[in-house]
């Protein structure tokens, strides 16, 4: 049984230790380097594992973003994806999750039209935005079912998949009709490093670049006036108040002082 799996990857800064331009209310992006969002490595690995179990299957990596998104796609190919699509819509580069999910949904519709898609995999969340909602948002646009926080894809065939969704107090076992969107978490697998063969393939790969027009949308569709939620500004989080060092001549004295303070603050 051959399946077509799409993995959505995002190119994110290699550090979360960003600084803020307080007067402009923006993240300082100068000098940041980018790589595949670490959480997306699990999604790529899962797609490749499903492909390995189902000979004849294809894995397509999809990324929306500026030039460094193309580099992220090459990394995904090095890790075992067969091909990639680079979606380039500059209007979406400003943390606009509505536009992002809309654009990715449209691109998936086009990919699905060319070669029917069975499963779309995502990482837990992006290391920059930290929201973790894209998988379900895209499913909403496409009217496909979605499960996020998936720690196991128990079984999959061309019409349905059984997935284990880790929730606060246990696991929801869900059967999804395909195509479906699935957000993975770290427990799902242990990603392998890129193989030599993969690295060769990634160098040679020809990655098509799609614009808004290519997916049937206009740049106006991503105009900031249509954003239902705007980021007014970024600011630095308030600093934590200075800490108190608990001193004492013995461990017992320190322990007593600590418990005193915890009781005083009603934490015990």
């Amino acid at each position: 049984m051959s399946l077509h799996i799409v993995v959505c990857v995002k190119s994110t800064p290699t550090t979360v230790n960003v600084s803020i331009d307080e007067s402009a209310g923006k993240i300082k992006t100068a000098g940041l380097s980018y790589a595949v969002n670490p959480f997306d490595e699990y999604a790529v690995e899962e797609a490749v594992r499903i492909k390995e179990k189902n000979p004849g299957s294809t894995v397509t990596a999809l990324s929306l973003g500026p030039e460094h998104a193309e580099a992220a796609l090459r990394e995904a190919i090095a890790r075992g994806c067969d091909k990639a699509v680079w979606l380039n819509i500059p209007e979406c580069d400003t943390h606009n999750s509505y536009g992002t999910s809309h654009a990715l949904a449209q691109a998936l519709k086009k990919i699905h039209g060319e070669t029917p898609v069975h499963l779309v995999l995502f990482g837990k969340n992006a290391s920059d935005g930290n929201a973790g909602v894209t998988a379900a948002q895209i499913a909403g646009w496409l009217n496909w079912p979605a499960a996020i926080s998936v720690k196991k894809i128990d079984s999959i065939n061309s019409s349905e998949a059984i997935v284990w969704r880790a929730v606060e107090n246990g696991v929801d076992i869900l059967k999804l009709k395909l195509p479906a969107c699935v957000g993975t978490i770290k427990e799902i697998n242990e990603p392998r490093l890129p193989s030599l063969k993969g690295k060769m393939a990634s160098k040679k790969a020809v990655i098509p670049k799609w614009t808004a027009q290519d997916i049937g949308l206009k740049t106006e569709d991503f105009s900031s006036s249509l954003e239902p939620l705007k980021i007014e500004k970024f600011s630095a989080p308030p600093p934590r108040p200075a800490g108190l060092k608990i001193e004492g001549s013995s461990a017992a004295e320190k322990a007593k002082k600590l418990v005193d303070i915890l009781i005083e603050r009603k934490l015990v």
Partner: peptide, 12 residues
């Protein structure tokens, strides 16, 4: 908060 607590975003 975003960037793992390193940036606070104000949304409207």
């Amino acid at each position: 908060s975003s960037y793992s607590g390193n940036a606070l975003a104000t949304l409207m």
